[in-house]
Design a binder for these strands. Structure first.
Lengths: 341, 341
DNA sequence: CTGAAAGCGCTTACAG
DNA sequence: CTGAAAGCGCTTACAG
């Protein structure tokens, strides 16, 4: 019965024009309060629903945002970006927008193919969630629509970005380890893979510098290739007393590896991660890590992009969202006597 | 420069009508091959992109599907439905459709509020992913648009559904335990919470019946309240030799609990799960479980719903997607001598 | 306060 | 093979 009720139907039944109905339903000037009430009343009885497509065509706004996530971040054991997407979705809906997810396949990324949402003019703007390769960044840059990088950035690009505070997160985590008496501290992560891993490394390094601890090149341990595919981690020998891992999943692998070699965590080796994702509490011991404020990141991203849509000229640059150390059981204070040197 | 190029622009530049451009770009009859080529050529040079909103208004199809997930299934440690959503997204995009995610909050579900995508006519149909309460089912039923339940069903409802083969999955898993010599087998799950948990229980029960094993009421162990909130699991005493858990996450909890009590898995107790999600391989020992074919479920759901959109009269009823046992390390053959009675 | 006109960009049915 | 006309449902700008 509420089969495609239009404003005209309401107008006809009330003997007014559809212009008046439009004004009433949108709370615009120019309708008497009494008539407005009658219109709203009837609209609700008839189960009137706005036809967004008509609105879209008239205004040139789809009220959709495309969220692009590179496929390699969406494996069965990686739920982090999906959770971010979920938060984006919620933030968007609260403002009358909707998110459309596009998983960017490896081959499309290589072949520099834009997602279908682009060719179909399905969206008013794009959020790229997760680092894409240099050439694809250029392709995105050439899109003449608002866009934003989330959880990574590119120095050569003029595209706004929202990232978690990787640098200070890792810096504080490393400070904490040093406070606990550690001085032989390794960093696990490929420095050339993503801006996040690189910035976390730099935070770790800053902490080392401030404490006049020499950075041992052999204690920068690779965990993946530059495309982001995990490789087998080779632990150095002798072992450091602590590992700063670029993410919880890698921390989990490192702990597995240590256990396999007969070492105990944190008794023999302390380990910290980054993200506070599912790995942090599924592993034994529970991981000390940085809780990335996903909700805040999503909200910031959505707000920035929406502002870009409404004011195409304003730019934000790089927006940093603070994280927070979560202290758990993977770090042990080091007795000075235990030190290797 | 590709600022809102329309068919008319192409038509004007070529001195033809926009009707001809439309036909050419859509590969319809009635344009000479030569002209069609010129049109496509120019369209591509100009960076023409179709205006979906116009198409939508004309055809009355949005080419969007709403995917509704109850909030309680989307906690930080539950990525299963998000992964299903991801697969739905991919399946949809392959057919020119797009998914719009709506997380149904607990209060909206209680208050029987329909999502905004409904009021905005944003979608051509709905996939409800994850069991909703009875009253909300009725609300969904009254929507005069194609809809489908995914991963659950309701006997009183005429809405099509796609589910994994819960019954036979649990049946085969229990058969396997019995083959390994187990006879004291508990089931963990609230039988009144979801259709999946109920059907898995029934599969377990069928296996027991077939082997003439008495169903001990005390060995049906509760894991959550009827709203789905997890509760503390109380293990029975004496312990059975095996647990059939309604999902991997609960299997994980059970194993944690057993370990805490000083029991070893699988040496003292065997445990199996269902889903083959991240918990299955993150726990020690790795879990023997049923691999739910997420990709197949998503594809089946998308195809069914799309057919419903194009043929509003056809119904499928309940579609069952087969899963597969994944044998890992959480089950140990039971030596007859070990039996408790 | 109320409404007639025009137009967003496309496609279908029809005429030539 | 090609195109003029009409209409999908809305909203803005203008006239009364």
């Amino acid at each position: 019965m509420n089969k495609n009720i239009t404003m005209r139907d309401i107008a006809n039944q009330l003997g007014v024009s559809s212009v008046t109905v439009s004004k009433a339903l949108n709370d615009k000037e120019g309708v008497s309060d009494e008539l407005k009430e009658r219109i709203k009343q009837l609209a609700s009885e008839l189960g009137y629903r706005v036809n967004m497509a008509a609105k879209t065509m008239r205004e040139g706004l789809t009220y959709n945002i495309g969220v692009i996530i590179p496929e390699r971040f969406t494996g069965p054991d990686q739920s982090f970006y999906l959770r971010v997407y979920q938060e984006i979705s919620k933030s968007l809906e609260a403002t009358g927008y909707y998110g459309i997810l596009h998983i960017l396949s490896g081959s499309d990324e290589e072949g520099l193919l834009l997602p279908r949402i682009y060719y179909d003019r399905k969206v008013d703007g794009f959020i790229v969630l997760g680092q894409i390769n240099k050439s694809y960044i250029e392709v995105i840059e050439n899109i003449e629509q608002p866009k934003l990088f989330l959880d990574f950035y590119d120095e050569h690009s003029s595209i706004d970005s929202v990232v978690t505070d990787n640098f200070y997160g890792a810096y504080e985590l490393t400070n904490y380890l040093i406070q606990q008496g550690h001085r032989d501290i390794a960093y696990v992560g490929n420095l050339y893979s993503t801006s996040s891993i690189q910035d976390r490394f730099l935070g770790y390094y800053k902490s080392l510098l401030e404490h006049h601890i020499h950075l041992e090149p052999k204690w920068i341990i690779n965990d993946r290739d530059e495309q982001g595919t995990y490789i087998d981690i080779e632990l150095p020998s002798p072992l450091p007393t602590a590992f700063v891992c670029n993410c919880d999943q890698v921390a989990y692998s490192v702990v597995q590896k240590l256990k396999l070699m007969g070492h105990r965590v944190p008794e023999d080796c302390s380990v910290v991660g980054f993200d506070n994702d599912i790995y942090a509490t599924l592993m034994e011991p529970h991981l000390t890590t940085i809780d990335v404020n996903i909700n805040q990141m999503a909200q910031t991203a959505v707000q920035s992009l929406l502002r870009q849509i409404n004011h195409p000229d304003v730019r934000f640059g790089r927006l940093v969202v603070k994280g927070e150390i979560i202290y758990r059981d993977s770090v042990k204070p080091l007795n000075p006597a235990d030190r290797s040197e």
